[in-house]
């Protein structure tokens, strides 16, 4: 029967070859590749755009002065190019933000993923994500007109300036809480329920199960969330420009006004630095530095995640 059947099939030879062309497959692949290439191409474009003025900048200003001095004032006369005040301000504000956002964000994530009822989570999570959508200019003015005056009244001994790194850092921290909380919650929710049951069955409380089983199992996702939040904090512009100020005097005290790298770029970029001038090229040099720092941080954290992650499937 089967032999008879086989003879009725046309084209016995090469019958396993593709019977008709599948152009759709090719088109889909091309579209997907293009989509993937857009972000890569943008990154490469940014690097190229940054590179040329940066190289020109370092032809005029020595690397030794850029990294060896704490005197910053490229728009002044005579100009000074010691970048440390900007680095200190950026790192300090980012640190304050992380100190605020990581504990609160993680606590919120643990609550949402492990403690909240289904209904609470359904209400709470979108609200949290709305917080991520608040324009940062709002946070900036809130820091400037509410938080700073409040702190000056409550803690006069802090001796806060009208614009200061502390208030800016706190609000940058509030801004990135939803990033930490929402992404951490996603990765904690993805931890198989069997792990929780295994822990409960050994007599572990909810708290111990959350902290010793769920968080470690979701660790790589949590670290990724924190890194993304740090990158956002380091590059945040509007809050630090409004509430942190532009004064680039070298200081470590967060009660003082200080200018971050992003704030400087915004200030100089919106000012009247003429194209091709040394002040104009400074913007690109600082931009390159910010890019390198963020990139290095992301790379390091990716390595860390690889090393410490607990794979559960």
């Amino acid at each position: 029967m089967s032999a008879q059947h086989r003879t009725t099939v046309p084209g016995t030879r090469g019958s396993l070859a593709r019977s008709r062309p599948r152009y759709g497959e090719f088109v889909v692949k091309a579209v997907l590749l293009t989509a993937a290439m857009v972000s890569v191409a943008t990154t490469i474009g940014i690097v190229i755009a940054l590179l040329e003025p940066t190289v020109e900048f370092f032809a005029a200003v020595s690397i030794g002065e850029f990294f060896g001095s704490t005197d910053w004032g490229p728009l002044f006369n005579p100009p000074a190019f010691g970048v440390w005040p900007l680095i200190v301000a950026t790192v300090e504000i980012t640190l304050i933000a992380v100190v605020v956002a990581v504990p609160l964000g993680l606590a919120a994530a643990i609550y949402l993923s492990e403690y909240a009822s289904h209904r609470t989570r359904k209400i709470f999570k979108p609200v949290l994500e709305v917080l991520a959508g608040v324009p940062t200019v709002v946070f900036g003015f809130f820091a400037l007109t509410f938080v700073t005056p409040l702190f000056r009244n409550l803690f006069p001994f802090l001796d806060l300036e009208a614009k200061n790194a502390l208030a800016a850092g706190l609000l940058v921290g509030v801004m990135i809480i939803p990033i930490v909380a929402s992404l951490s919650e996603d990765s904690m929710a993805a931890v198989p329920n069997g792990l929780r049951e295994g822990s409960y069955a050994l007599g572990a409380s909810k708290m111990l199960t959350s902290v010793r089983v769920v968080v470690p199992a979701a660790f790589s996702g949590i670290v990724a969330a924190i890194i993304l939040a740090i990158s956002r904090a380091a590059g945040e512009t509007m809050i630090v420009a409004i509430a942190g100020g532009f004064k680039s005097v070298f200081t470590l005290y967060p009660g003082n006004e200080m200018s971050t790298m992003a704030a400087f770029i915004a200030q100089a970029g919106s000012g009247d630095a003429s194209v091709g001038s040394i002040a104009y090229k400074t913007i690109f040099a600082v931009g390159s530095l910010l890019f390198v720092i963020t990139f290095a941080m992301n790379y390091l954290s990716a390595r860390m995640v690889q090393k410490y992650r607990e794979v559960y499937d």
Binding site: E197, G198, S199, G203, A204, R212, V213, E310, Y312
Partner: peptide, 25 residues
Amino acid sequence: GMVFQKPNPFPKSIYDNIAYGPRVN
């Protein structure tokens, strides 16, 4: 105690899996 249908060791070392229960208790 309980043993489940699908083996559910924690994504930790063999040692830490066993030590988990005594530690939390």
